[in-house]
């Protein structure tokens, strides 16, 4: 029986061959698991190895290509071509909608020279489907980001776009998309000074849809409370200040929030009354 190979020797060989091992798979997982862990090269290699790729495999190859390093125009073109192949078969089924969304993302985010007008066109087409698919609905969130925050438009145009998108957003149903849409609209209403009451309504809608991250939650609760205070909706302010204090025991805002809560309670003259959380 040959002697076992020293781990030291293995280590030295591994260092020397590190570049070759860069796409060593993590374990017994699907390419999608690798992609979810950020191991894009591994996932892409697995997708690309398929001899007879189905539409989902093509989709996997495309969405991993867009983040494959080095990021090249050739990779992005190849990804766009794969996505177009999926769309050519059917542009309204689930893979088709996913492909259309990521085609817009390539134009908006991934190209070295972004093409926002193409992205807007693709998102509008997706939003026009009125599909329940989350990625079709997410196009409305992206439209809000691209159209309201576009450079070089005057405040009247911002208002027009905001109102139009508010109508478009009314048809959204996927909870995560609804939340993100209202977070964007609430923020836009504050930044472009489109009305505190409007901003408050949007942030309350985001909160109802279900905020997941603690950091978003604490900021949103503070904003809702502050807007409640500014718009005279003291019940809302009191409820959300209290929620914040009950849930976030270590936050540098606690002292200021406690003081603002005490001030409103004193103002309302109802320090001992229980206030239901406004929902």
């Amino acid at each position: 029986m040959p002697p076992p190979i020293s781990p030291r020797l293995v280590s030295i060989l591994a260092i020397l061959t590190a570049p070759l091992l860069a796409s060593d798979p993590v374990g017994d997982t699907s390419p999608w698991d690798d992609a979810a862990l950020g191991l894009f090269a591994d996932a892409h290699a697995a997708f690309a190895r398929h001899k007879n790729p189905d539409r989902e495999t093509r989709f996997g190859e495309a969405v991993t290509l867009i983040n494959l390093q080095p990021k090249t125009d050739a990779n992005l073109d190849r990804a766009a071509s794969l996505l177009n192949e999926i769309i050519a078969t059917d542009s309204t089924d689930l893979p088709g909608i996913g492909a259309r969304y990521y085609l817009a993302r390539i134009a908006q985010i991934h190209r070295a020279s972004p093409d926002p007008s193409t992205a807007v066109r693709l998102y509008r087409e997706l939003a026009g489907l009125s599909s329940p698919h989350p990625l079709a609905q997410r196009a409305v969130v992206q439209l809000a980001l691209l159209e309201i925050f576009a450079s070089g438009i005057d405040s009247a145009e911002v208002r027009t776009r905001f109102d139009h998108l508010s109508e478009l957003g009314a048809g959204l149903s996927d909870p995560s998309v609804v939340r993100d849409f209202h977070l964007v609209m609430g923020d836009a209403a504050l930044r472009f000074k489109l009305g505190d009451a409007t901003a408050l309504d949007h942030l309350l809608a985001a909160e109802r849809a279900g905020i997941v991250r603690a950091t978003t939650q604490r900021d949103t609760w503070v904003r809702i409370a502050e807007l409640g205070r500014r718009t005279g909706r003291n019940d809302v302010a009191i409820a959300y200040y209290r929620r914040f204090l009950e849930n976030f025991l270590r936050d540098s805002r606690r002292r200021m929030i406690s003081e603002r809560l005490a001030s409103i309670l004193a103002e309302d003259g109802r320090a001992n009354r229980h206030v239901e959380v406004a929902r």
């Binding site: 950020g38 996997g60 969405v63 996913g98 990625l135």
Partner: peptide, 14 residues
């Protein structure tokens, strides 16, 4: 944001 695009696609499929 670009990295999150692929991560999100993977999460959606999973």
């Amino acid at each position: 944001i670009a990295r999150q695009d692929t991560l999100a696609a993977a999460q959606a499929v999973l």
